[in-house]
Design a protein around this nucleic acid. Structure first.
Lengths: 163, 163
DNA sequence: TATTGTTATACTCTATAACTATA
DNA sequence: TATAGTTATAGAGTATAACAATA
């Protein structure tokens, strides 16, 4: 179909011809670079609400699961309990969540979002959806589904294999 | 319709019905979780060669681009120059690369891999490919292409937008 | 004056051991 | 003895300012 000799239309990416075809051949490398680039933008969006990725995820999970315990939350978010504590401390100090003792188990706390927490979560979530639309709009429906499916397969390949 | 007596319930890990459909609705969250899970396995693979992700990428790039300068390399890998210095220090101390003065510009160093560097790179790269095959085998050709295309679109959406 | 490589530093994210108070 | 939450800490990864040598 294409003549092999007649395509000088190389992407004039950077100054000297530095090739990274070896690294580009690794999906893991592309995944890292894509996520890093995405994260820069996402962090800027969340910064408007004084949130970072883990506090945002934490708030969303508490709103969706009122009464959740810290250990359940840490497990669901795949973060360590000690790291969650400081996140919850900050969210509680900002009066976005409450920690209530569980009557049936006085070791545990039931996590709930305050009214302010619900409102901030709603606004931040919509902003994140707008951020996502920036690149999702460039993907076809088939591509989105393939991406979603592929990400889930990658995740389960390694997560369920007993880390 | 099973008798409730026989089975001691499911695994304790999925104990109460905690939903994360809100977060799962965000591609960025799935991307992060997938990459994190993949990274755990990848780091274990690289650890056999006493390499981390950045040193591995660095070595691959130097092997593919002999004579590369540090600033070019940092740019290609999207890492900061100061952080690259310590990576190169370690690779040089292990005698995997050399730093030679550029005659035409005595400020710069030309980076080259030693024989040992080439050999380690070759072995590590093959091990990483085997790691990749673990999840790529579960993806159809269409899924791989969609994943690759989608990752590139995500990357260019944010990388070219002037970070 | 600008650029290359460098040093020092700081901030985020993540991981682990060990403690307390309950169960 | 085991579990929920906590404290303290250490290790990576990443980001910026400022410097010396060179262009």
């Amino acid at each position: 179909m294409k003549p092999a000799t007649a395509l000088p239309a190389q992407k004039k990416t950077r100054a000297n011809d530095i090739s990274d075809s070896q690294l580009r051949g690794l999906f893991g490398y592309n995944l890292k670079r894509s996520f890093s680039a995405l994260q820069v933008d996402l962090l800027r969006v969340l910064d408007r609400f004084d949130l970072r990725m883990v506090p945002f995820s934490t708030l969303v999970m508490i709103v969706e699961n009122p009464g959740l315990r810290q250990s359940q939350l840490a497990d669901a978010l795949a973060i360590e309990r000690p790291n969650l504590v400081v996140v919850l401390d900050t969210l509680e100090r900002r009066e976005l969540i409450t920690r209530d003792r569980v009557p049936t188990d006085r070791r545990a706390y039931a996590l709930r979002a305050t009214l302010a927490g619900h409102q901030l979560c709603e606004k931040a979530y919509r902003a994140v959806q707008a951020h996502e639309a920036r690149y999702l709009n460039r993907l076809s429906t088939a591509e989105r589904e393939a991406l979603s499916s592929a990400l889930n397969k990658i995740r389960t390949t390694f997560e369920e294999a007993g880390e």
